[in-house]
Computed example of a mutant assay.
Amino acid sequence: MTRPADIYFRFLQLADALRGLPALPALDPLEQRILELVARVGQAQERLSVRDIMGKSELGSPATLHARLTSMREKGWVRLGDTEDARRKQVELTPAALRHFDKLSEALLRAAKDQ
Score class of each variant (00 low, 15 high):
68 R>Q: 04
27 L>C: 07
31 E>R: 04
16 D>T: 14
69 L>R: 01
69 L>A: 02
36 E>S: 03
38 V>N: 03
103 K>Q: 14
113 K>N: 06
15 A>L: 03
42 G>H: 04
16 D>Q: 15
96 A>G: 08
60 G>L: 00
109 L>D: 02
45 Q>E: 13
57 S>V: 14
63 A>W: 08
113 K>S: 07
3 R>M: 11
23 A>F: 12
5 A>M: 05
5 A>E: 12
114 D>Q: 11
66 H>A: 15
99 R>Q: 03
58 E>H: 07
93 L>F: 05
29 P>N: 03
7 I>D: 01
107 A>V: 02
103 K>S: 14
51 R>K: 15
108 L>W: 08
114 D>L: 08
71 S>K: 02
113 K>M: 02
80 L>T: 12
23 A>W: 07
80 L>F: 02
111 A>S: 05
35 L>Y: 07
94 T>F: 13
40 R>G: 03
104 L>T: 08
107 A>H: 00
40 R>P: 01
13 Q>F: 12
10 R>V: 03
31 E>F: 03
99 R>K: 11
88 R>K: 14
59 L>P: 01
4 P>R: 11
82 D>R: 09
74 E>S: 09
89 K>Q: 14
85 D>H: 01
98 L>T: 12
75 K>S: 10
112 A>L: 02
25 P>V: 05
104 L>R: 15
39 A>G: 00
83 T>S: 01
86 A>L: 06
64 T>I: 12
9 F>V: 08
16 D>K: 15
112 A>D: 02
19 R>V: 11
40 R>N: 11
26 A>F: 04
88 R>V: 10
76 G>S: 09
115 Q>C: 06
29 P>L: 08
81 G>H: 09
28 D>L: 04
115 Q>I: 03
36 E>K: 06
20 G>N: 10
54 M>W: 06
64 T>F: 01
105 S>I: 00
93 L>W: 07
90 Q>T: 12
3 R>C: 07
32 Q>M: 11
102 D>C: 08
35 L>M: 09
34 I>N: 00
63 A>V: 11
11 F>W: 12
84 E>G: 12
49 S>V: 05
41 V>H: 02
46 E>V: 13
90 Q>I: 13
1 M>I: 10
64 T>V: 08
72 M>G: 03
114 D>T: 06
9 F>M: 14
80 L>E: 11
18 L>G: 14
115 Q>M: 04
45 Q>D: 10
98 L>H: 11
21 L>M: 13
16 D>S: 15
109 L>V: 00
48 L>K: 06
1 M>N: 13
113 K>Q: 10
26 A>I: 09
33 R>M: 05
92 E>A: 06
2 T>E: 10
20 G>M: 11
72 M>H: 01
112 A>F: 00
46 E>W: 09
53 I>E: 07
19 R>G: 15
83 T>M: 13
22 P>A: 15
85 D>L: 15
6 D>N: 04
20 G>D: 14
6 D>A: 10
42 G>N: 07
99 R>Y: 08
38 V>P: 01
102 D>F: 08
78 V>H: 04
99 R>I: 03
58 E>T: 10
91 V>D: 00
10 R>E: 08
18 L>R: 14
100 H>E: 14
35 L>A: 00
18 L>A: 15
51 R>H: 14
96 A>M: 14
45 Q>I: 07
96 A>W: 09
88 R>A: 15
78 V>K: 07
